[in-house]
């Protein structure tokens, strides 16, 4: 087609573009005004209510006990999610096993760990010493080779990790099972017909496709786990929340420290949300005919002078991260 600019003679067949008065929306304007007033009130309260003590918030934001607590929170989140994922895949495969003992055990595990509160489980692991004062290695029902005190073998961090990780495994198991079952049976059949073993089929064909279903809830679980770690403050492990508590129990600056802690949680969940977005995109390859551009790609496209709205989802191959189809 020729560019329309080049045609000097006007085509009479082409109708004039429509000039009409657009529909007015007075309700939207009224709503906007109400919201602006509310935001103004909120900002006013935040900055003029001295009880917020923003200077104290700032003072403790990078305080060493807070940042130490932050590191513990991150370690706990990462390790319990790893435990949850590995345990979850294992339990999911067990539950889908034709062996009734394996699937029964997996079912029982999920029933117990999903059916009791994680707070109770945490305290339980912390008091394991009351149940079995010593732990030992030996032949079952036979002689013991080595034994030690439960309380020294399971310090509070390990108790927290067991509580969170084993509980998470039960939830992840159901997520992974749902993912595996969402993959068409023909996929495993095609893979077997090519001579691929069960293990290779699971690893190369089934799990990567299940990931598309598994990733979004796993992202939610990770974000949820980050916040759930604050529960371990009850067994006196000094993570982020407990670190804040320790300070305000001393200084009585309760509100500013709660804000300090919340700002950190908010920052970390934001980082995780961005990470989740890109991981989801990666596992969506092949399922969408063309992926929509990422926010960064949109912004770059805007600065490159394309002021047209990015309506058709064209992946710009020149822009970062767009190489999915090359």
């Amino acid at each position: 087609m020729n560019s329309p600019d080049q045609g000097v003679t006007k085509q009479p067949a082409r109708p004039e573009s429509i000039k009409a008065v657009p529909v007015r929306h007075p309700g939207r304007w009224a709503g906007a005004v109400v919201i602006v007033v509310l935001i103004a009130m909120l900002l006013h309260a935040l900055f003029y209510n001295k009880a917020f003590q923003w200077d104290v918030v700032g003072k403790y934001l990078f305080d060493s006990s807070i940042t130490n607590g932050l590191v513990v929170t991150l370690e706990l989140t990462a390790l319990s999610m790893v435990m949850g994922l590995v345990g979850g895949v294992l339990l999911a495969v067990m539950r889908l096993s034709p062996n009734p003992l394996l699937s029964g055990v997996a079912w029982l595990y999920i029933w117990i760990f999903r059916g009791t509160p994680v707070l109770v489980q945490l305290v339980f692991w912390n008091f394991l010493g009351a149940l079995w004062p010593t732990l030992s290695i030996g032949i079952p029902f036979g002689p013991e080779f080595w034994s030690g005190s439960t309380n020294t073998l399971i310090p509070v961090f390990t108790a927290a990790l067991l509580g969170l990780g084993l509980n998470e495994a039960a939830y992840m198991a159901e997520i992974v099972r749902g993912g595996i079952q969402s993959v068409d049976e023909g996929q495993a059949e095609a893979s077997h017909a090519l001579g691929m073993s069960r293990f290779t089929t699971m690893r190369r064909i089934v799990l990567p496709q299940a990931m598309r279903v598994i990733i979004p809830p796993t992202g939610n679980e990770t974000i949820s786990m980050l916040k759930t770690t604050s529960l371990v403050s009850v067994i006196a492990l000094e993570e982020l929340f407990r670190a804040g508590q320790n300070i305000y129990s001393r200084t009585f600056e309760t509100i500013p420290l709660l804000i300090t802690v919340s700002l950190w949680y908010l920052f970390l969940t934001s980082v995780l949300t961005v990470g989740q977005y890109y991981v989801e995109r990666y596992y969506a390859r092949g399922s969408n005919r063309a992926l929509p551009p990422t926010p960064i790609q949109r912004i770059r496209a805007l600065f490159q002078g394309r002021h047209t709205p990015p309506a058709p989802p064209v992946v710009n191959p020149g822009v970062h991260g767009g190489g999915n189809f090359s």
């Binding site: 068409d184 023909g186 996929q187 059949e189 095609a190 893979s191 077997h192 017909a193 090519l194 001579g195 691929m196 073993s197 064909i205 990567p208 496709q209 598309r212 596992y283 390859r285 092949g286 399922s287």
Partner: peptide, 20 residues
């Protein structure tokens, strides 16, 4: 699995791996 390597199979519903 080793024996299946020598036998190719084509399915009604193709069963291509969609993530590849």
């Amino acid at each position: 699995a080793v024996k299946r390597q020598d036998i190719g199979m084509v399915f009604q519903r193709f069963n291509l791996f969609p993530h590849m």
